[in-house]
Amino acid sequence: MELTTIHLSKQFKDKTAVDDVCLNLTPGVWGLLGANGAGKTTLMRMIADILKSSSGKILYDGKDIHTMGEEYRNIFGFLPQDFGFFQDFTVKDYLEYVAALKDVPVRETRKKIDGLLHTLTLSDVKNKKIIKLSGGMKRRVGIAQAMLNNPKILIMDEPTAGLDPGERVRFRNFISEFSHGRIVLISTHIVSDIEYIATQNAIMKAGKILDVGTTDELVKQVTGKVWTCLVPADKMPMYEMQLRIINQRSEGNNQVSIRYLADEAKTSDSVMAPPRLEDLYLWLFPQEEISEEGK
């Protein structure tokens, strides 16, 4: 099973949102990393076949997904970044409605819904109107609907936005278990959410895929570029000007432990640190650039 994008591009009036993307998604969890405006959402919408590409195509096991139509949507689950609900529906009503649209047999619907509500700790609110739920709960209802038909391809755009740390951990475990034999593509800003569960990552910048690989393969790019050291607290403003600090922690005695990115050590007592996916993300997407792309 594979989902392939072939020279996929999407041009809006004066902006190329997705630029000649070639990706070959195989079973497992795929993390799609990129700053705001990198083109992740546009790419996901095209994979969901709700947005037409300007050029290129998407194939599922060699068949054009657009031509497959219903057949493709039958094995597909999608959680968009921004989505609404029917405001007067309860959680249960809504999931029953989506289950019918997904052609889940009536007999299986209740069992399936109860199972998902239990897994996503929503059982207590199943008869509550969706409008009355918290942001995190709404997001979990969104996750539940995406999984109702046991999709072979699951695309989730920022699924962990609004979830608290406990919910994020449960989500990671659930997705990790769910992904066996399926293609799960997750875009997120919260790198830690996919760092340990993603079998592959794709890094996107300005509409292009910069790199694809496992977390270990990708972080090699920043090996030797992550440093830690202790600096006096009163000199922090100066270091902040000079270094790309990605983390800082007060150590007492007027000392601050910093983690920074640089091609070489910038202080005499700097120690090379093992790189993480977040370091790579910040190396590739410096804060100023993220702000620019988001505009």
Binding site: I50, E70, R73, F76, F83, G84, V98, L101
Partner: peptide, 13 residues
């Protein structure tokens, strides 16, 4: 509301 993005991705959507 954006709910259409979910519905039109379903089999009968």
């Amino acid at each position: 509301t954006g709910s259409d993005s979910i519905l039109r991705c379903t089999k009968h959507g």
